[in-house]
């Protein structure tokens, strides 16, 4: 498959999830597991551009497909506007949900650069955060959207 723009090859047992392959086989531990059943969004990645929870994708399903993880969001040493905005707006506290939120928010802003607060909240409702109360996450995504436009 293509992982963050580069071709990779690996072996997976059918029962291994994409999340497991990313974390344990490919050692990309930026994608987190919070629940294992698609209800927290910490493991969000994009699969051929679609936002998915990688805990509910089999690794073998990704064969020949393109996967983007949190490790593929920054361009070299330059943080993506969303990453900068999350730091500047204090949109993370413990940071465990942050990779999922950034991957999810990027998928939204790539498709809908003009997304408003209502749209942002609806899109991100698959991602749980227990620290921030979400307020500063919304502000950060709005700020990044403005920056990206």
């Amino acid at each position: 498959m293509t992982l963050n723009g580069e071709p990779v090859e690996f072996l997976a047992e059918p029962r291994q999830t994409l999340l497991e392959c990313l974390r344990d086989t490919l050692h990309l531990t930026g994608t987190k597991e919070g629940c294992g059943d698609g209800n927290c969004g910490s493991c969000c990645v994009t699969l051929d551009g679609n936002l998915v929870t990688s805990c509910l994708v089999l690794g073998v399903e990704a064969q020949g497909r393109s996967v983007t993880t949190i490790e593929g969001i920054a361009r070299g040493n330059d943080l993506h506007p969303l990453q900068k905005a999350f730091i500047e707006h204090a949109a993370l506290q413990c940071g465990i949900c942050t990779p999922g939120f950034i991957v999810a928010a990027k998928a939204l802003l790539d498709a809908e650069p003009a997304a408003d607060e209502e749209r942002i909240r609806l899109w991100l409702a698959n991602n749980l955060c227990r620290c921030t109360g979400y307020d500063k996450i919304v502000r950060a995504v709005q700020a990044a959207a403005k920056e990206m436009r």
Partner: peptide, 9 residues
């Protein structure tokens, strides 16, 4: 059905 990331699948 589900949230955004669930709807992707």
């Amino acid at each position: 059905i589900g949230g955004t990331a669930i709807q992707g699948r």
